[in-house]
Nucleic acid binder design. Sequence first.
DNA 1: ACCTGAACACCGTTCAAGT
DNA 2: ACCTGAACACCGTTCAAGT
Lengths: 206, 206
Amino acid sequence: MDAAISVADEQGIGSLSMRMLAKTLGFGVMSLYNHVKDKDDLLDGMVNTVAAEIELPDGQATWKDGLRACMISAYRVMLSHRWLSSVWGRSPGPSKNGYHEVILRLMREAKFPEELACRGFHALTMHVTGFALQVMEMPFSNKAEFVALGNKSLNELDELEFPYLREHIHFHLEGKDQRSDFKYMLDLILDGLERDFADARKRITR
Amino acid sequence: MDAAISVADEQGIGSLSMRMLAKTLGFGVMSLYNHVKDKDDLLDGMVNTVAAEIELPDGQATWKDGLRACMISAYRVMLSHRWLSSVWGRSPGPSKNGYHEVILRLMREAKFPEELACRGFHALTMHVTGFALQVMEMPFSNKAEFVALGNKSLNELDELEFPYLREHIHFHLEGKDQRSDFKYMLDLILDGLERDFADARKRITR
DNA sequence: ACCTGAACACCGTTCAAGT
DNA sequence: ACCTGAACACCGTTCAAGT
């Protein structure tokens, strides 16, 4: 399990085959099937193991701080295991359930109505894994590759047809993009939930 | 190209192999390589072809309406080609560039400052493809499978350990979730951009 | 309970050969 | 310019055989 995770971390999930994993461990291929039902089963186990790395907030935190910290931690875990987001959606294991339970608990114990908690749950989890998926999916993995790709695109893009796209690429190449879009959108969601929550409370008290 | 797209649409991108595509077309496998450099090249072409299905707003639309319509159309296209979001991130072709250009143009011609347009661009595109990726990645594809999985999860989840997660699953199984989280978050982003834009204008006029 | 190699049914792609 | 089959180096998994 741990071996599979380090292979995926270092070589990418694409290079993780049963055959090479067995070789790494010094066994025949078929020995793996004594510890794992399937390759699917292996992947489920890997997800469950690294999902445990997500830091869950303690009982004291307010719903907003707690959620914020929790989502940032989940996002960090996804960035540190670059294969994780692409297999995150498979059948839930105990650590993923624990993470989901905490998100819902923070909202429900703060007296969010069930419907708003549901919406918040999906908005937040979709944001984290969707954003991570999208970042992982980008066709470069370091600054140099990024610059190379940017310049290549600039050469290919017609100045008259794509003026704003060219401007946008220049903007990035000049390093003027110094804020985190992940946190910007996270706060957008949290602030939106806060407003909806306030509205819901008013409606009840009235 | 069209054949590859219909195979992927009907059987999933996982079943799209060069060998079976060739068989579907009634040729030998290697004939494909006269029309396409690679399997990568094939996928790039497929993305470019369906990206052209995204409806771009005409010149009259306000930035907000135009962006909203454009993002909803893009999301619809991703839902109708269930393999699309997973390969969307590969090297950009002309129709994807056109889509990106329109997004940037709507904001820049409405006098968004460059930085805010950049942020908006990423917030919106990440939302669309991230959300689509996450939806596609879910381990069910119809109501029946969803209900089966929900009930299975309820059986496995301990009542004391995961009370809120169980409540959440019940909420879905009872069909109380009738709004679109996609549009909810889309409007969250658009409203956020509108506020930031108003702030930026105030700062300049002052 | 754990390990194993041979075998099966698949991949994408190279290469030399044809029209 | 277009098509082709054989071959190569890979997959995940089944099966029968070992300890």
